[in-house]
Design a protein around this nucleic acid. Sequence first.
DNA 1: CATAAATTGTGAATTTTCGCACATTAGAGC
DNA 2: GCTCTAATGTGCGAAAATTCACAATTTATG
Lengths: 292, 292
Amino acid sequence: MDNWDEVRTAFQVARMGTVSGAADVLGVHHATVIRHIDALEGRLGVKLFQRHARGYTPTEAGQDLLRVAQATDDQFNQLVGRLKGQGDDVSGELVITSLASVAPLIAPVLADFQKLHPGLLIRYLTGDRVFRLEYGEAHVAIRAGRAPDQPDNVVQPFIEQKVGLYASQDYVDRHGLPERTEEFPNHLFVGNDDENSRAPFSRWLREYTTAESIAFRCTNNFTMQEAVLAGAGIGFLSEWEATRHPGLIKVMDPLPEWSGTLWLVTHVDLHRTTKVQAFLKFLKKRAKEWSF
Amino acid sequence: MDNWDEVRTAFQVARMGTVSGAADVLGVHHATVIRHIDALEGRLGVKLFQRHARGYTPTEAGQDLLRVAQATDDQFNQLVGRLKGQGDDVSGELVITSLASVAPLIAPVLADFQKLHPGLLIRYLTGDRVFRLEYGEAHVAIRAGRAPDQPDNVVQPFIEQKVGLYASQDYVDRHGLPERTEEFPNHLFVGNDDENSRAPFSRWLREYTTAESIAFRCTNNFTMQEAVLAGAGIGFLSEWEATRHPGLIKVMDPLPEWSGTLWLVTHVDLHRTTKVQAFLKFLKKRAKEWSF
DNA sequence: CATAAATTGTGAATTTTCGCACATTAGAGC
DNA sequence: GCTCTAATGTGCGAAAATTCACAATTTATG
């Protein structure tokens, strides 16, 4: 069946009983209808209609086609209804991706958003690889670093992620606190294992201390956090993360250059949908209530 | 949904994941595929695919369409299978129409043919109005009179319907038998109520006796038969009908001009089908075994 | 890192399809 | 029985869709 439009034409002819009637419904000339039917019958090798001066009467084959095409027509109409109305409600899947490190911040928001929309299935992807919006892998990405500038992406600033330098009580008991940056090489630091890390605080740290002093290196931000808590050294934690661990001691007053911006990124095609817009609005409202 | 071919194109794109792949499957140029997708999305106002350098990834809307179109594709393929294989087996409906008067002759044949093809549904239409082949009302018609010459009809001679003049024993007891046609006006006849009846024996009767002597007139051939059996008068019965009623007395030797030919008529479009051919072959074989 | 392969995207030429006009034919109504 | 209407059917010019050719871009690979 190589031409679905011809089936649609035959369907209307079977419904109407006349070529002219079908042509009116389809909005084409009756000659077109005749040609479609002739072509379809020729290709199938089966007579679909008996032609007579009062119109076209479907044969058994034509009646069979009528039934099938009727079902198809219904299906397509329902599909159009779903597709057109789709933008108007928040349901189906909502796929969010972010760095794993912001999960404690985002997860509660997602949970609350899901409670607001019972029909919604939340998929929160955090992984080593970057999930790509242009492949449709996620509706919304929360990205760090400088503003991404991919042409198909809609980027907007989310929050300033303020970062502070912390140490555990245990570490302070053993090594004390550095009072000036000049003392940094005599301390132990927890840092990123990636020499080329683009995180601003990582670069800052590489600048102000020796490589040897960064004695505990992780590929994973969660691990870094745990290392600091365990007293492995001085390390950077986001302010909001630090507030969850009262035992931590602030090593220095935060510097503005440590902080990086988190960005909300969506794909152009999905950005306008009600679902994505509803989530972005909800997320930003919640972010305003954050005090760090 | 005004263009089913575009749905089909979108379906293949969703299946293949690339425009090029879909174009190969569809046997068209990839530019055509792109334009179909663009047109469909434009008309629906919904993005069906996310475009990127590695191909097209269906959005949720695209996935929805994929499911629906997959079902449609399956349905259409099954339909094609049914339509193409339809000519090769005897199943579905077989609609026969004839004069009611030949029902005793035809019905047993139909019954046996049905026993031969368990999947077959026989519809035997006998009614006052003529069922018309060109409207697809019947596959095969058994017609009397001179050969019909409608252009779309395939006509072949079936049997000579020999007709004799009979009376019941009761009638003969009361009125005797006419020995020559000159005595006809003194007898009572059962005839057709239609003055213009084209049946040859009706015309013959009108010629050889007076209108008054045709005292019992019917519109229905069955009724005529019953009237003769009841002794209402002398009347025409087909030879095969008379053999079923041994009590009847033959008034005259049958004349050749009384008999008329029965014709088998089919519509051109249906004549070539296996089902019709099988029935015609079966019917003619059975007719050869008839001895009247 | 450079090259090759695969894919999307777009303007011009070509093929196909469609619409129009008219002929034809079979019913409907008086 | 005759006309009138409403269908189907067909040749031809116009319009639309398709193909072609080539550009642009991204990913895979040695």
